[in-house]
Design a protein around this nucleic acid. Structure first.
Lengths: 190, 190
DNA sequence: AATATTTTGGAACATTCATTCTATTATTCT
DNA sequence: AGAATAATAGAATGAATGTTCCAAAATATT
């Protein structure tokens, strides 16, 4: 009896995510979103709720995708080379000044908005936990020194994404990012 | 013949800066600013120009103060301990989840707004240059290994502030920040 | 064909926003 | 005292905002 949804909510969500990603939450208007998603206002409110709810879903979508990325890198034989490729891939896949939605959101909203902070925190915890597992394995295989603390290193590595994205936004110089990545990776091995 | 200004523009500018610092540019309204600065709208527009111009002046003010902070640390005898205190001081003086105005602004505005990016870039260049000088001195005094590249280390150190503030916003755990600072400083010496 | 539901376009609403303006009061200098 | 400027209060403006609503068009199922 009923008409089917003509659009794929997941696909449209990614459009919204990309726009938030580029402009930030506050600087993105519903008007912008309608145009970018090529959806009517009513359809958006119907499917996702209000702007805030839509943004939360974008964050979750992003978090899921990022974590999937990480786990893919874990399939390498050596845990150290898994860590290496997680960092290198971030630099390699960067899109001109778009940095990372999680990092951007952390600085724009997380300090003021508890709901957003919770989502970003959770993603951070999961990422750090993946990194820590890799570091512990690497330590057992003598790929990194025994005296290092895997928890601290994992926190440092996760936080280093913020470093990389900052420099990308400011200078957009790939060679600079590469040498920073070199140093970051060197620092966990020595 | 004329009445004198009853308020200190510099002092009021700092009030504005602190509010922008806390809430970010887009989330701060002129109404908020009037209340925080305890000034009339007209007085603000008269003294600083519009919201955007006011924000730029806040950024400049912040940049000047930060750079002064850095230079103060340089008076230490050992360049390495100067670097140490620059990092430690940042962690020690942090204000509950307020992170750093420069880093926040970089992620909120710098990728979209060329004028803002220019200001933040300039401050970054100056900070990196101070750090690089210290690193070169440290290298000559054998405080850090000869094979390290001071330019890369300086970029890494500057970017590391972003790491520290990210983790501060997300977890607000001083011990975590301290151990991260330990690792960052260790990494430039080994 | 008839019915049910989605999508769409766009009007409508209330709110907030940055900005400008006017009128009034206060203060300084001659 | 009087002229000149500064500060204030608050109204006014116009644009943009998020959100709701309605009516028409489209499409699926019975």
């Amino acid at each position: 009896m009923a008409r089917n949804k003509a659009f794929d909510p997941e696909e449209k969500l990614e459009k919204a995510r990309d726009l938030f990603w580029e402009k930030g939450y506050n600087a993105t208007s519903m008007q912008d979103l309608c145009e970018e998603m090529k959806l009517n206002r009513a359809s958006i409110y119907d499917t996702y709720g209000d702007k805030y709810a839509l943004f939360q879903q974008c964050l979750q979508n992003y978090a899921k995708e990022k974590l999937f990325d990480y786990k893919q890198c874990c399939e390498k034989v050596s845990p150290l080379s898994a860590i290496d490729s997680i960092i290198r891939r971030a630099v390699h896949n960067r899109k001109e000044g778009k940095s990372c939605l999680m990092v951007k959101t952390s600085f724009e909203l997380a300090s003021m908005d508890e709901g957003i902070r919770h989502i970003v925190q959770e993603q951070a915890r999961q990422s750090i936990s993946v990194l820590q597992e890799l570091l512990e394995k690497a330590q057992k295989m003598n790929e990194i020194p025994a005296e290092k603390d895997p928890a601290t290193l994992a926190q440092f590595l996760y936080a280093s994404f913020s470093s990389i994205w900052l420099m990308d936004v400011l200078f957009g110089d790939k060679a600079m990012l590469d040498s920073m990545a070199d140093h970051i990776l060197y620092s966990i091995r020595h």
